[in-house]
Amino acid sequence: MKEQDPNLYGLMAEFATPESLVESARKIALAGYKRFDAYSPFAIDELDEILHCENSWIPRLALAGGLSGAAFGFVLQHYAAAVWYPQIVAGKPFDSIPAFVPITFEMAILGAGLSCFAALMFAYRYPHPYHPVFNVERFSLASQTGFFLAIEADDPLFDSVQTKALLDEMSSEAVYEIPK
């Protein structure tokens, strides 16, 4: 492996259509690259498989959040109504379980929703205002009409000359260097 420019984050190719982006991403994955990402102005289902996106942890976390929310809601009501401030209202028992159902349910939804949201924000690393890809001027189109693919310099297969040649021979519009 050759000496790399320490100020190079990677190389970026721009594509005119989502189809050419998907096709090139597939070729790069086949070539053995691991540290690369595709950028598009909307979700493209085909890329999930190519980039090995694994999100099953998000629903699991949401489930855990929901169960904890429900448990918290119920225990809160039990302690408040039967332990900390027991009070007879309308002759009902202290632990009036049917009356505790709505809040337990709402807390389950709230817990699941908040943990799902937190998981998503973690997946985004939100907020993440600076990223080297923003240094490429044309990249502002990635949120509008442009399709980009970036290979990072710390990929074991990365070589500034050969990788550039690989990106050049694909149906890309242009290839840019991404400074750090």
Binding site: A43, F117, A119, Y124, P127
Partner: peptide, 17 residues
């Protein structure tokens, strides 16, 4: 936007969530 850059990994997480 908090640094949203349309990464395919983020889109994928977005769809799930």
């Amino acid at each position: 936007a908090g640094g949203w850059r349309g990464s395919a990994r983020h889109w994928s997480a977005n769809k799930t969530a």
